[in-house]
Amino acid sequence: MESKNILIVGVGGQGTLLTSRIVGKVALDAGFDVKLSEVHGMAQRGGSVVTHVRYGEKVNAPLVEIGEADVILSFEKLETSRYAHYLKQGGTIIANVQEIDPMPVVIGAAKYPSGIVEGLQETKEVVAVNALEEAKKLGNIKVVNTFVLGVLAQYLHFEKNEWILAIEQTVPKKSIDLNIKAFETGFNFRKGE
């Protein structure tokens, strides 16, 4: 199998790191070679963050190249746009439509762009989800992660129980049930709903 390339993007503090580690664990347990590249340090202070996940029979570089991502999982709308050029032809973007103003917008030096998802949809397959809304419905905004992970799982070839096992082993004990529920909601989410 050629290696599968996933880019997970968002804003520092949104939980992209934990999500990528669950994906890494599922791939490892399924017997694949896995590499992840993370961002620590200065970039975590509310800056733009990107985590690369690659798995397959043999993975060399831990980084996904521009134009080579099979899936881009984005936690924030502006960040979706920032990394969209990483998508390969025929790839899929899973985009949480949440907006977080970056500092240039906060201080009025720039405007938050409008029509991001619509613009990308002209040339790319974009699955837009309102993860914050879904998480609120589930009763805890902290499960935004596991909801979008569920949506991502639809596009990867691991079994549902493999995901659930990885989630059980990764999230805090008392929140396992809620996270699995959020994952299942995402897993059953259908485009356009």
Binding site: G46, G47, G67, R82, H85
Partner: peptide
């Protein structure tokens, strides 16, 4: 020859004081 899309021109998101 690797043709790649240019990144979109967007407002930056520099790290900030929390």
């Amino acid at each position: 020859q690797i043709e790649t899309e240019k990144p979109a021109e967007l407002p930056g998101r520099p790290p900030v004081l929390c």
